[in-house]
Design a protein around this nucleic acid. Structure first.
Lengths: 242, 242
DNA sequence: TGAGGAGTTTGCGCGAGCGCAACGAAGAAA
DNA sequence: TTTCTTCGTTGCGCTCGCGCAAACTCCTCA
């Protein structure tokens, strides 16, 4: 609701270069400025609006995104139609990586914008010719893919052997890093119960009950659409049993 | 207990080449025979025994494996020490792929042999020089990594939004494809309740109760260490509710 | 052949988390 | 202010799957 909401105009070429340098995206690691210039030259800049879809699961993977401003998130949909949130995509992160496989494939997950923002976009044909020219792109992509596997491994451990409380606590911890604002009392998060429930795969009732309990124990303060964590680490430590 | 238990001797070079051709591993797709010869030339052949560990989570990823005979499986360990089984690795499948990243990393998961078997093994240094020479290896690795992400996505959906019955049914279905033997009555699986319980993340009691119920409904016949499925598809269809 | 052990079955009770309904509280609109 | 809507809270009952104990069934080995 706040971050990136004030985006007005498309970035200039110089601004893009500067922003890329600042973000130092893993995908472009190890490249000389002139190579980066070539790679950026093949990309278009797209602006996106909060809640719009950047990629849709099952559709042909024909674009690679690199977020410059704003944030997005990846989710998948179960057979019964419920969304399962997977990961957040922040400035500097890629999305739609399946488009750089040597065989044409479909997107594995959907990506939706959480805020307004902008992204570099490469068409698959452009990316393929770039990977021919710069195998280093493939190496970097492999590193990123391997991070995904790690993230999924942890997600899976979380889903299959942690209690609801532990999962919600972890979600709060990770959100604290991403959208948290430090204040004297701790870290402020602008987040609704419903969002927490979706990310932790529990119901809004369970979230409410847990937050009340933690509030009673003095671990956090809850108000409408906002949570103030005293200390994310302590929360995770005491979440499950204590 | 049965498959591959009779392995006696190490394969000759010619046998390896033949086996690789037969398995057509995804990692070596698109290579000419002479390139494959070069790549195989950099590998050693290791035999492994059932229950031995090929790779250990958290240890430096310095070897890539390609299973030739027998089978293995990947698992991870939770903070509380319980194993969570992730995927089966069959002849033609790679393991330890993290060793071909351009940065040194640790293994993400452990791999243990399920049966006796053998595998091609590349040292990381060898793999790195091969990927320089043949970027196609990176492309193939990326395809494989993307398959892993897909597998994990499905695992995660399974763990976070399917009932115990549905998960066990799916495990039976996938085992049927891998270790099932076709007979007139259906498909025979040599598998214990405990193994099913581990793969589906349920207890042995739950497995027992589910199998009894399905037995009563005529979907399968259970005996000690063995399950005979009438039809894997029908089982999955009727597992959750019906 | 019979004693021991591993794998399996079943009853029973329990606890986590879900899902509904009713209520309360905070903003937004009029 | 008052009204309306959205978000959050809490009580209650229920279901699923776990976990233990006890019994039962194969299988193996002495």
């Amino acid at each position: 609701m706040k971050t990136g909401a004030g985006l007005k105009r498309t970035l200039t070429s110089a601004e893009i270069t500067a922003r890329v340098k600042e973000l130092a995206p893993q995908l472009l690691e190890g490249f000389a400025p002139r190579d980066i210039a070539v790679i950026l030259g093949m990309a278009a800049v797209h602006r996106f609006e909060a809640n719009s879809l950047l990629a849709i699961e099952g559709h042909p993977a024909n674009k690679v995104f690199l977020i410059l401003e704003g944030q997005a998130r990846a989710f998948t949909t179960t057979r019964k139609g419920e969304k399962v949130l997977l990961l957040r995509i922040l400035p500097g992160d890629p999305s739609g990586g399946r488009a750089l496989l040597s065989k044409p494939t479909d997107y594995l997950v959907s990506t939706e914008a959480v805020t307004n923002g902008s992204a570099l976009v490469w068409k698959r044909s452009a990316i393929l010719s770039l990977t021919k020219q710069y195998p280093r792109l493939l190496e970097n992509a492999l590193l990123i893919a391997s991070d995904y596997v790690e993230i999924y491994r942890d997600l899976h451990i979380g889903a299959s052997s942690q209690s609801a409380g532990q999962r919600v606590a972890r979600v709060l911890q990770s959100l604290a890093k991403i959208i948290g604002r430090r204040v004297v009392e701790g870290v402020v998060l602008d987040v609704s119960n419903e969002e927490l429930a979706n990310e932790a795969n529990v119901t809004i009732f369970t979230v409410s009950r847990l937050l009340s309990e933690w509030g009673r124990k003095g671990l956090l303060v809850k108000s409408r659409g906002r949570v103030v964590l005293h200390s994310p680490e302590e929360l995770v430590r005491r979440a499950g049993w204590a």
